[in-house]
Amino acid sequence: MRNERLRDALLRNGFTPTDVALAIRVDAKTVERWITKGRTPYPKHRHALAAMLRESESYLWPDAVAPEHAAQVSESEVIRIYPHRNSVPVEVWDRLIDAAAKRVDVLVHAALFLVERPAFIKELRRKAEAGSGIRLCFGDPASREVARRSEEEGLGKGTLAARIRNALAFYRPLQGVAGVEMRFHRSTLYNSIFRFDNEMIVNTHVYGIQGAHAPALHLRRLSIGSLFETYSECFDAVWTSARSATF
Results as ranks from 00 to 15, higher is better:
residue 188 T to R: 13
residue 67 P to N: 04
residue 46 R to H: 03
residue 205 H to E: 12
residue 156 G to H: 09
residue 192 S to M: 08
residue 145 E to M: 05
residue 171 Y to W: 07
residue 43 P to L: 07
residue 146 V to F: 04
residue 155 L to C: 01
residue 42 Y to W: 03
residue 124 L to Y: 02
residue 119 A to R: 05
residue 196 F to A: 00
residue 242 A to F: 03
residue 170 F to C: 03
residue 139 G to P: 05
residue 91 E to Y: 06
residue 90 V to A: 11
residue 147 A to K: 02
residue 146 V to G: 12
residue 145 E to A: 14
residue 44 K to M: 06
residue 184 F to C: 00
residue 201 I to A: 00
residue 30 T to P: 14
residue 102 K to D: 08
residue 142 A to T: 11
residue 133 G to P: 00
residue 147 A to Q: 13
residue 13 N to D: 05
residue 155 L to M: 15
residue 202 V to P: 13
residue 95 R to H: 06
residue 71 A to L: 11
residue 238 V to Q: 06
residue 191 N to V: 09
residue 180 V to S: 06
residue 209 I to Q: 12
residue 73 V to G: 04
residue 212 A to E: 09
residue 115 V to S: 11
residue 3 N to D: 10
residue 245 A to R: 07
residue 232 S to F: 11
residue 103 R to C: 11
residue 81 I to N: 10
residue 160 L to W: 07
residue 23 A to K: 12
residue 142 A to Y: 02
residue 68 E to L: 12
residue 131 G to L: 02
residue 204 T to I: 12
residue 105 D to A: 06
residue 21 A to H: 06
residue 139 G to T: 12
residue 247 F to D: 02
residue 144 R to T: 10
residue 213 H to T: 01
residue 195 R to K: 08
residue 64 A to V: 13
residue 184 F to M: 01
residue 23 A to T: 11
residue 38 G to I: 15
residue 75 E to Q: 15
residue 68 E to M: 06
residue 247 F to R: 01
residue 217 L to P: 00
residue 221 R to I: 00
residue 227 L to V: 13
residue 174 L to C: 09
residue 198 N to W: 01
residue 166 N to Q: 06
residue 207 Y to C: 09
residue 75 E to P: 02
residue 173 P to Y: 09
residue 243 R to G: 09
residue 179 G to F: 02
residue 185 H to N: 07
residue 161 A to F: 05
residue 161 A to H: 06
residue 29 K to Q: 15
residue 214 A to S: 15
residue 245 A to D: 00
residue 37 K to E: 15
residue 108 V to A: 11
residue 61 W to S: 06
residue 151 E to A: 08
residue 84 H to R: 12
residue 193 I to Q: 03
residue 237 A to N: 05
residue 168 L to W: 04
residue 93 W to K: 05
residue 46 R to I: 10
residue 35 I to Q: 13
residue 18 T to L: 15
residue 48 A to G: 01
residue 212 A to L: 09
residue 28 A to Q: 15
residue 114 L to C: 13
residue 215 P to Q: 12
residue 157 K to F: 07
residue 192 S to R: 11
residue 116 E to G: 10
residue 65 V to Q: 11
residue 7 R to W: 12
residue 183 R to N: 03
residue 56 S to I: 05
residue 130 A to W: 00
residue 244 S to A: 10
residue 233 E to N: 05
residue 56 S to M: 05
residue 206 V to G: 01
residue 41 P to I: 13
residue 134 I to Y: 05
residue 81 I to E: 09
residue 86 N to A: 07
residue 14 G to F: 08
residue 96 L to V: 00
residue 39 R to Q: 09
residue 206 V to W: 05
residue 56 S to K: 13
residue 195 R to E: 02
residue 108 V to F: 07
residue 34 W to C: 02
residue 234 C to V: 10
residue 140 D to S: 07
residue 158 G to S: 12
residue 196 F to Q: 00
residue 58 S to Q: 14
residue 151 E to H: 10
residue 107 L to Y: 04
residue 196 F to H: 12
